[in-house]
C-alpha cells in the first residue's frame, strides 16, 4: 500500500508535463498542427457525421443525377442523384472505424507477440519470428486479397485481413525495443526485487515500447485507409451501396468521362485523410523519437 501512495505523486506531474510537452511541440510545427486539426475534424465528422448531413446520403433523386458541384450540392451528385458531400460525411465513420479498428487489433496482437518474443527469447522467439517471416513473404495487399478470397467480401473481413497483415510489423517493432529495454538496469532491479514476469513485461517494458508503437500506429492508419479503400475499390470490401469512400470510387468510375466530380471528391478526401495521418505521424516521430531528428 505504501508503494502505491509513494509512486503516484511522483509519477503524475512527470507524465502530465510530458503530455504538455508533446502538445506544445505539435502546435509549434505548422504542418503537424494543420494535420492534427484536420484529424480532429475527421474524428468529429466520424462521430456526428451521419446526423448532420445536409441531405439523406442514401436517398436517390432521379431528377438530379450526376449534377456538377453547385451551391446546393457542393461536391455535386452521383449517378443516383445522391449528394456526394453528404455521403462522404456519412462515410467518414465507416472509413475511419474500419482502419482504426484494424490497426488496433493488429497492434494489440502484434505488441503482445513482440513482448513475449523479445522477453522470453529462445524457442518462443524463434517460432514467433518465423511466423512473422512467413507473413512478411506475402505482399500486404496480396495477403489481404487472399484472406478476403477465403472469408468472402465485406467490411468485417476487410478489418480482419488488414489487421492480419499489421500484426508482424508491430511484433517486430516491439520485439526490437523489448530486447533493448530488457537489458537495462531498472528491469534488472525489478527482477531482483522479485517482480513477477507479467509485472515486468507490462509495468516496466511495455511503457518503454509505447512511443514507437504510437508513432507506428499513426503511420499505419494512413496505410490502412489506403488498403481498405483499395479492397473496396476492387469490389472486395464494403457493399457498393454503403457510403464507404473506396466503394464510392468503385461504383462511380464508370461515370468518370461524363461526370469527373463523382470520382474526384471521394478520392480527394481519402488523399487528404491519409496525408494528414502521415504528416501527423512524421511530426509525432520527431517529438517522441529524437534520435530520428536530423
Amino acid at each position: 500500500m505504501n508503494t502505491v501512495t509513494m509512486e503516484s505523486p511522483k509519477d503524475l506531474p512527470k507524465r502530465k508535463s510530458r503530455m504538455q510537452k508533446i502538445v506544445k511541440e505539435i502546435t509549434r510545427k505548422k504542418v503537424t498542427l494543420i494535420s492534427s486539426i484536420f484529424i480532429m475534424i475527421l474524428i468529429i465528422a466520424a462521430i456526428i457525421g451521419p446526423w448532420i448531413t445536409p441531405y439523406n446520403p442514401a436517398a436517390p433523386d432521379y431528377s438530379n443525377i450526376l449534377s456538377p458541384p453547385s451551391l446546393a450540392h457542393i461536391f455535386g451528385t452521383d449517378a443516383y442523384g445522391r449528394d456526394i458531400f453528404s455521403r462522404i460525411l456519412a462515410g467518414t465513420q465507416i472509413s475511419l472505424s474500419v482502419s482504426v479498428s484494424a490497426v488496433l487489433i493488429g497492434a494489440v496482437i502484434g505488441t503482445i507477440l513482440g513482448l513475449v518474443s523479445g522477453f522470453f527469447g529462445k524457442l518462443v522467439d524463434k517460432l514467433i519470428m518465423r511466423v512473422c517471416d512467413v507473413l512478411f513473404a506475402f505482399p500486404d495487399i496480396i495477403l489481404a486479397i487472399g484472406i478476403v478470397a477465403i472469408l468472402g467480401p465485406g467490411l468485417r473481413n476487410v478489418v480482419i485481413a488488414v489487421a492480419f497483415f499489421s500484426v508482424p510489423s508491430f511484433a517486430r517493432l516491439v520485439r526490437g525495443t523489448t530486447l533493448e529495454v530488457k537489458e537495462q538496469l531498472f528491469v534488472e532491479s525489478a527482477r531482483s526485487m522479485g517482480a513477477s514476469r507479467r509485472r515486468i513485461i507490462f509495468k516496466h517494458i511495455f511503457p518503454e515500447t509505447l512511443p514507437s508503437i504510437m508513432v507506428y500506429f499513426t503511420m499505419s492508419i494512413g496505410t490502412t485507409i489506403l488498403a481498405a479503400a483499395s479492397l473496396s475499390f476492387l469490389g472486395l470490401g464494403a457493399d457498393p451501396s454503403t457510403p464507404d469512400w473506396g466503394a464510392m470510387l468503385s461504383t462511380s468510375r464508370d461515370y468518370i468521362g461524363s461526370a469527373f466530380h463523382v470520382v474526384f471528391f471521394p478520392g480527394l478526401i481519402i488523399f487528404l485523410t491519409v496525408l494528414s495521418f502521415n504528416v501527423f505521424g512524421d511530426g509525432l516521430r520527431e517529438i517522441l523519437d529524437p534520435k530520428l531528428k536530423d
Binding site: L226, I256, F264, I270, V274
Partner: peptide, 12 residues
C-alpha cells in the same frame, strides 16, 4: 506521393 490512393491517381 505516399498518401495518394493509386487507383484515384489512375482515374484522374
Amino acid at each position: 506521393g505516399i498518401s495518394l490512393p493509386n487507383f484515384w491517381v489512375g482515374l484522374v
